[in-house]
Amino acid sequence: MCDRVVTVWLEGQGLRMRIVVDLNRCQGYAQCAFLAPDVFEMHGEEALLYDPAFTEAHREQVRRAAAACPVQAILVEADEARVTPVGA
């Protein structure tokens, strides 16, 4: 097995940040859609649509949205976790 570990920044993806929403938790409070409307959007009365990859320009908005979520359903990738080791 190759034991070389290559560390790459995700520049191939244009330095987009990643989120995932636990939609089992989400109860449609819509705080995120209010605080970061470019990333989160209500679809109907309580379903949430979101863009899983967003750019630096929306970073603060998304952080605020994640912090404000009453059920803490939004996982934003930690900066330190963005270094992703890729084994060859």
């Binding site: 097995m1 190759c2 034991d3 570990v5 995700l10 993806q13 987009r16 990643r18 989120i19 995932v20 959007e41 649509l49 979101y50 863009d51 899983p52 990859a53 996982l75 934003v76 990738e77 930690a78 330190e80 976790a81 963005r82 270094v83 992703t84 080791p85 890729v86 084994g87």
Partner: peptide, 19 residues
């Protein structure tokens, strides 16, 4: 409204592993 190649999961912590 989202790109198919952009749903990469956020990592909770850096996984030091051979991929």
């Amino acid at each position: 409204r989202a790109r198919a190649d952009a749903t990469t999961l956020p990592q909770r912590n850096s996984v030091n592993a051979q991929w």
